[in-house]
Design a protein around this nucleic acid. Structure first.
Lengths: 257, 257
DNA sequence: GCAGTTGTTCGACAATGTCGACAGGCCGCC
DNA sequence: GGCGGCCTGTCGACATTGTCGAACAACTGC
């Protein structure tokens, strides 16, 4: 099929139309300009609204081009919004798994913790919100690295700090590990950053399949994994379920009721 | 169908991925990052290549984000490229119609002439390449105005300079005229800018249905139209055929063989 | 040299987007 | 104030469209 994808071509045409327009445009104007039924134009507009390329004036209903997109280093998903959306699902995960929960977003080759839910028991714990987890030595980091080729690019063997004897310290081993993470859709960390700690993590998938963050649990190795070092299926299922739930939430950005 | 269009969502995801990447990425990397088969990712990438959102390194085959797109007043189609592509079809149009041919691109509410082909007979003529034709009083201008809602927005009744007694000088009459142009796909001008001149014009449709320019013929009123003021069908067909041919040319931007 | 990549093309299937028609809301004109 | 036109957004059936597996060729690195 040596043809281009029409939906995208049409979206591009409409986007250029809006970019060239000094004032917001109504759906019918756009439709007649590109010779498309209004319903079709509306569908394309709504999609571009969802992905943030364009904006809609709430009172007039007219559409206008979004601000400062695609600028070099253009903004990813807003961490605050992601935190807000994941809270509803992170709490139940902690309750049902009995472990502490973390949500993280990518920051260079590392993972920035943006949300933390304490383990249900009343032991002393410390929330490390704001902390930077190493990408190669944490479950959350591995997930982000696996689905963000841009980040992994910069990692050299020298940068793979060995935290424990189990830390992956060569680029080739890390690469194959990340390939496995991509295949199976989740990552595990056992004693790679701290000998007595293990963790599980899964990606948070935004619109279009783009991974915008990761969610996971962490705790004592013997609670997270069985004696053979295999993650306990129940915990794994809980993490994946939570990941999918937040993902679904991200797919419905019907903000502003 | 209260769902978004997936192709566009995926394109957006890939675009953000590329925007966040400091270095060019290969197809397979992109595919695994958004969990898509390579062929699918390739199709989306090719489309975004065609519309100019991304670029491809000719030697490595890697993809990188395009430069300076969507900047306020971002570039339209390059007039030089449009001129080059339309030349092959404008010449035959002049030969077969026996009239002079003009190609124009939008510039504000007016039409900038970027190409001119002399009428085959050897009468004295003057090529007005570079001239600015009024949008409301020329066939080329009406076509551009009809498919560029952004331009018409600024026109007030005061701006509708009356060149002759036949010039459309009220906004309402112009609006209905433009609606008709959109319906039928071509525009006519008879004595509206110069009493003894008539013209026919049709849009040049780029990718996705966006009108990027217009092509048309002009000459003595009695040669362009019949005594009743109706455009001669043969000439009209020739203009439309030429318009479609150039449009097809624009849809195949397989530049650089 | 071969084995493992890579980017790209082709074709068939069915999932997807398109488009006509309907409902709800708003403005403006009588 | 009520009415008519025009607007945006929704729903559903159809078929066009995009997707995805498999095959091809060119390239890289053991």
């Amino acid at each position: 099929m040596p043809g281009s994808i029409q939906s995208i071509e049409r979206a591009a045409a409409i986007l250029e139309l809006l970019a060239a327009a000094p004032v917001p445009l109504r759906v019918s104007e756009i439709g007649s300009a590109v010779q498309l039924p209004r319903a079709t134009a509306h569908g394309i507009l709504r999609t571009m609204l969802d992905v943030g390329w364009i904006e809609q004036d709430r009172v007039s209903g007219k559409y206008l081009i979004g601000e400062g997109r695609f600028a070099p280093g253009g903004r990813q998903v807003d961490p605050n919004e992601l935190r807000a959306r994941s809270m509803n699902w992170a709490d139940p995960l902690a309750a049902r798994s009995g472990e502490a929960v973390r949500v993280a977003v990518p920051e260079g080759p590392a993972a920035r913790v943006i949300h933390y839910v304490f383990r249900p028991d009343h032991s002393t714990q410390k929330a490390d919100v704001g902390a930077l987890l190493p990408g190669h030595a944490s479950a959350l980091g591995k997930v982000l690295l696996a689905f963000r080729p841009s980040a992994g690019q910069a990692l050299t063997d020298q940068a793979l700090t060995p935290y424990t004897s189990r830390t992956l310290t060569t680029r080739s081993r890390l690469t194959s590990e990340l390939a496995q993470v991509r295949r199976q859709g989740w990552a595990v960390e056992q004693g790679e950053r701290q000998m007595d700690l293990a963790a599980l993590a899964a990606p948070l998938t935004g619109l279009g399949g783009l991974v915008v963050g990761a969610v996971g649990i962490h705790g004592a190795v013997d609670r997270i994994c069985d004696p053979n070092g295999v993650p306990r299926p129940r915990l794994l299922a809980l993490v994946q379920e939570c990941s999918r739930a937040i993902g679904r939430e991200l797919h419905t950005p019907r903000t502003q009721a």
